[in-house]
């Protein structure tokens, strides 16, 4: 559905994206990870047709992103990384305007109402008076309200509270079930891990790792942080093939295969467990492999 081949887009400050290659199949959720100014937004900018490439080609549904931008938009939803609306408009007025610009007015009214309800979007006030979280919700409703086939989402949950983030993840999973093709650029491991089939890590405009394995790794091996009230029977853990790492006195990180969790629970039931936390850091670890130094400095 989305295909990017040897895409290079250089800015005058030397930044940009370089020889990017990736494909997103129909019905797939693809995650783009990387910190600020790694090239995530530029990637989306290229797909949106805002900037022409110096080299290479990007297509959506077989259409060239720069040349057929308007046709592509018929079936595309977009959440910008930097929220900018027509500030002097009222929320409803803006949504109506966007619907008119898309030329679909009546058909999708129900979807729009459902989205407004789901994200508790305030629709009466002027946009300039909205909080940043409300604006983020407005961006979500704007992107999804015409029920597009392809979604390009740049930091879609950056301003949402955890409750709304969960609702957003649910929305993505529902849309995925309905066969939508979704590209999410994000710095958040959690939402990427929960939604994406495949992940690409972008660094300084290059894709440094891209495969299903990233996702699989995190699915295959679960990691838990466990605090015991008394020294645990490590032999028993070893016997069932669980990995463990001592973090502090009576504090362990225990790893288990995805299909052995019930067994782990049974084994641990014999111990005095005080704290049992899921450690969903797997993707983050992979990420840190590439960004370790910078992240630690920051």
């Amino acid at each position: 559905m989305i295909a990017v081949k040897d895409a290079t887009l250089k800015y005058s400050n030397g930044k940009g994206i370089f020889d990017l290659n990736f494909k997103v199949q129909k019905g797939e959720v693809f995650g783009c990870m990387g910190p600020e100014s790694a090239g995530k937004t530029t990637t989306i900018s290229m797909l949106m047709g805002f900037s022409r490439l110096n080299k290479g080609v990007a297509t959506i549904a077989g259409l060239n992103c720069a040349k057929k931008a308007a046709t592509i938009k018929k079936n595309l939803g977009y959440i910008p990384g930097e929220l900018a609306f027509f500030e002097n408009m009222r929320v409803n007025e803006f949504l109506n305007f966007m619907a008119h610009m898309r030329g679909k007015t009546q058909k999708n009214q129900k979807i729009r109402e459902a989205l407004i309800e789901r994200f508790e979007l305030e629709t009466r006030g002027k946009i300039e008076r909205l909080s940043i979280e409300m604006k983020q919700k407005l961006a979500i409703v704007t992107a999804f309200m015409h029920d597009p086939e392809v979604l390009l989402l740049d930091e879609p949950t950056s301003n949402l509270d955890p409750r709304m983030q969960t609702r957003f993840v649910d929305l993505i999973l529902e849309e995925k079930k309905r066969g939508k093709t979704i590209l999410i650029a994000s710095q958040k491991f959690g939402e990427i891990e929960r939604t994406c089939d495949r992940v690409a890590v972008i660094k300084e405009g290059h894709i440094v790792e891209q495969n299903e394995a990233i996702k699989l790794k995190s699915a295959e091996t679960k990691s838990y942080l466990v605090k015991f009230g008394a020294p645990p029977n490590l032999e028993e853990l070893k016997r069932y093939g669980f990995g463990f790492k001592k973090l502090a006195e009576n504090n362990y990180e225990i790893t288990a295969a995805g299909d052995h969790i019930d067994l782990l629970v049974k084994v641990l039931s014999k111990e005095k467990v005080i704290v049992f936390n899921s450690n969903a850091q797997t993707l983050e670890e992979i990420f840190l492999k590439y960004y370790g130094k910078e992240m630690q400095k920051a």
Binding site: M48, G49, F50, A69, A70, T71, I72, K73, K74, L76, G77, Y78, P80, E82, A84, F85, F86, E87, M98, M101, R102, G103, T142, A143
Partner: peptide
Amino acid sequence: KWVDDGSFACLLSTPNSRIK
């Protein structure tokens, strides 16, 4: 004004060409 403050992106996210 719209290009500078970014709201032009709203227009371009609809199926309307830049020319139009």
